[in-house]
């Protein structure tokens, strides 16, 4: 167990060390989300009606959730790259804890997610977003974000191990996650969608998490969404972490 923790930290460190050295990756984590916030607020914002809220207040929790779900992409790309480049073989030939390669990856994502959350929030605060919440609620909101992002890292881990190349991971991940985040209450109120989409948006875990964030940060009526959001995040981890680890054992044996 101690071995698992220390090996996980070594792998997490390995994945974080590269960040400051890859300006392109750093741009993806910082500038790109900021660009989306500005586009949405100033291009679409005027045309989207969000009763009860300024669009910037409505958008920030939504776009942060979308962003954090995509944060796990680095795990999919990184694992897929490690598989094709033979690094997974190196790790598997070492007397290290088996789960550490994945656990270290996903842990590193938590750190990068925190970074991009902070960038988005600061951007939001500059262009007019304001909290309507206690410190405790704000912190709980951050915890939910990181947990949900962590859950998605495991989904992306499974994806990254299952596909044949980093490029495939990229397009498959995009196809899977992009519509999920858009057919939710992240950018527009679900009620404004056609009936079938609205139905989907209502049961979409993204909607539940976005609603939970709005409730925690803006004092919106929550219903069950805060508990529901945490439950979703834990359930996703409980399902996808073991699947990814099992896949790692098998996939690494084949490549």
């Amino acid at each position: 167990m101690r071995r698992l923790v220390s090996d996980t930290m070594v792998i997490a460190e390995r994945n974080l060390v590269r960040l400051p050295r890859s300006p392109d990756l750093l741009l993806a984590f910082t500038v790109q989300p900021v660009m989306f916030v500005l586009l949405f607020v100033y291009v679409f914002g005027g045309a989207i009606s969000t009763p009860g809220y300024d669009y910037v207040d409505f958008l920030i929790p939504g776009i942060i959730v979308q962003n954090i779900a995509f944060g796990g992409f680095t795990t999919a790309l990184g694992l897929s790259e490690d598989m094709t480049k033979g690094l997974i073989d190196r790790f598997r030939s070492l007397p290290m804890a088996r789960a550490a390669v994945l656990a270290g990856r996903t842990l590193a994502d938590v750190a990068t997610n925190l970074l991009s959350c902070a960038v988005l929030l600061i951007t939001g605060l500059i262009i007019g977003f304001s909290f309507d919440a206690s410190i405790g609620e704000i912190v709980l909101g951050f915890l939910l974000l990181l947990l949900f992002g962590y859950a998605f890292s495991w989904i992306f881990a499974l994806l990254g191990l299952g596909v044949s190349s980093p490029e495939a991971a990229n397009s498959l991940g995009f196809i899977a996650v992009f519509p999920l985040t858009f057919i939710s209450s992240a950018f527009v109120p679900a009620e404004s969608m056609p009936a079938a989409l609205e139905w989907f948006a209502e049961i979409n875990p993204f909607t539940i998490v976005v609603d939970a964030m709005r409730s925690l940060w803006l004092g919106a009526p929550a219903g069950n969404s805060v508990w529901g959001a945490f439950a979703w995040a834990f359930a996703l981890i409980a399902i996808f972490a073991p699947l990814a680890v099992a896949r790692y054992r098998r996939a690494a044996g084949r490549a």
Binding site: R3, D7, R14, V17, S22, G86, D89, R90, L94
Partner: peptide
Amino acid sequence: GLAGQYAAVDENLTGSENLTMVGRLYG
């Protein structure tokens, strides 16, 4: 020790970091 067909080094790490990482994974 195994050295593979594809040089299995982490391109994003320096030479020193690569070997240090492996050493720490050996405990």
